[in-house]
Design a protein around this nucleic acid. Structure first.
Lengths: 238, 238
DNA sequence: AGATAGTACTAGACAGTCTAGTTCTCAGGA
DNA sequence: TCCTGAGAACTAGACTGTCTAGTACTATCT
């Protein structure tokens, strides 16, 4: 229910990495002007409401009320509802992109490959199964007919970017003789979906279920890696 | 565009074979009364429009117009928009269920397992990637917040049913020593998603792409089976 | 002075109802 | 087999109430 992913409620000034909006996280300096603060409050509120109720289910009045801002101010910052929506989604995509950025660190060391992949898979699955990410998927899929370019942009920037990194990684591992991969892109897709598919698809359709336990997710991650290695690792590497 | 998937009964007056005279359906008379014909026309129109525009994007006037029926008649047959929507989705689920029913015939013979699974996988993927099924997934996911029980019903009846059949099949194959499966449910999920995930998820987000070519789908099916067998087949069965 | 709040307003969409008049269906009589 | 009439089903469109995107205007704040 109440997700408040983005820290929603409060304005910018809490040090949390709240700003899912247009503000890139790491480079602090959250625009200290009043106008910028209002803008951020609007983005945060819009993110909360859009993610909770979808595009069609959200009214501009709701957003303004949650942001504690007058409707006029909303329209001062964002020309119309569509632009506000795309601004919100773009912000989330940016956040997701930089999230994934740091993920592949520490891989490619020469430890136990299975161990490393399991570790990575668990993290990956845990990130993707965060409630607000799941909600985001639902909202974007539901609005894909109205915002095709936005949906495509999500697909190409958020998940596909991660898979490209996978592909590069598997390519390198194949070069080192630690994996047997002929099509790295395909291997990356297989790895990705072996880990994510089961819980993610269930989450798409079973809305009011409580999110699955960590242990369950870890199980899916480990089993996905097991299948992946069976297909892509030379016989020796177990 | 015009999918007209819906139910047993064909549409009313689609230009082709104007079957008002004698058109005995595949089985069971399609309710020859005027009222039943109107009802079916409404369902067909509603299916088209709901699938194209989603729940929120569809108006009852649109449906009535497309069905060439007065709005009053729509409300004579369906108490309100929600009930019409659930009737449409239920119809599609029923159709999908009986579609999948006949699928597992011919498996379990003692031919080449890889061959058989590849054949099956290709069919499965081709069915799921039909445009109206893909659209259905999108619409249900998008409306899942408003209709949680409907989304759950879809999940449990349409895809989960198929996976249960898989699981039983893999169980039997394991008993015969042709597969090495400890958790048949998990194996069924892995099989299912190894085949479907890549094109299906792309289709979720890339709305206006033309559907992938058959050869591409077959490639994904075959590669999915390859990975599956590597993980679940005793070393000999390649 | 410029941004914002608050609120009232416009314009249009849509679910669902109502009414008055029309068409179809079908039983039963010739 | 054809006719007929009663009643159910249907049509067309106006209508109500509600909701919402977006605008206008004035008072207030910083």
């Amino acid at each position: 229910m109440g997700e408040h992913v983005v820290d929603a409620g409060r304005a910018v000034e809490d040090g949390g990495r709240a700003g899912v909006g247009t503000d890139p996280g790491p480079r602090a300096a959250p625009e200290r002007g009043r106008s910028a603060r209002k803008r951020q409050a609007i983005l945060d509120a819009a993110c909360t409401v859009f993610l909770r109720d979808g595009y069609g289910g959200t009214s501009m009045d709701n957003i303004a009320a949650l942001a504690r801002v007058s409707k006029q101010t909303v329209y001062k910052h964002f020309a119309d509802k569509q632009r506000l929506f795309t601004a919100v989604i773009d912000g989330v995509i940016d956040a997701a992109e930089s999230d994934g950025q740091e993920m592949l660190d520490g891989l490619l060391t020469s430890g136990d490959l299975g161990e490393q992949l399991r570790h990575y898979a668990r993290r990956h699955l845990a990130v993707i199964m965060q409630p607000h990410i799941v909600q985001m998927r639902r909202v974007i899929i539901g609005a894909a007919d109205q915002f095709p370019e936005l949906a495509r942009s999500w697909y190409e920037r958020a998940p596909a970017r991660g898979r490209a990194a996978f592909a590069a990684l598997f390519s390198e591992l194949a070069r080192q003789g630690r994996l047997r991969v002929s099509d790295p892109e395909l291997a990356a897709e297989h790895f990705n979906w072996l880990i994510l598919s089961i819980p993610l698809n269930r989450a798409m359709f079973r809305v009011d279920d409580e999110p699955p336990a960590v242990a369950e997710l870890d199980y899916y991650a480990d089993e996905g890696v097991r299948v992946f290695l069976a297909a892509y690792a030379p016989a020796l590497s177990r």
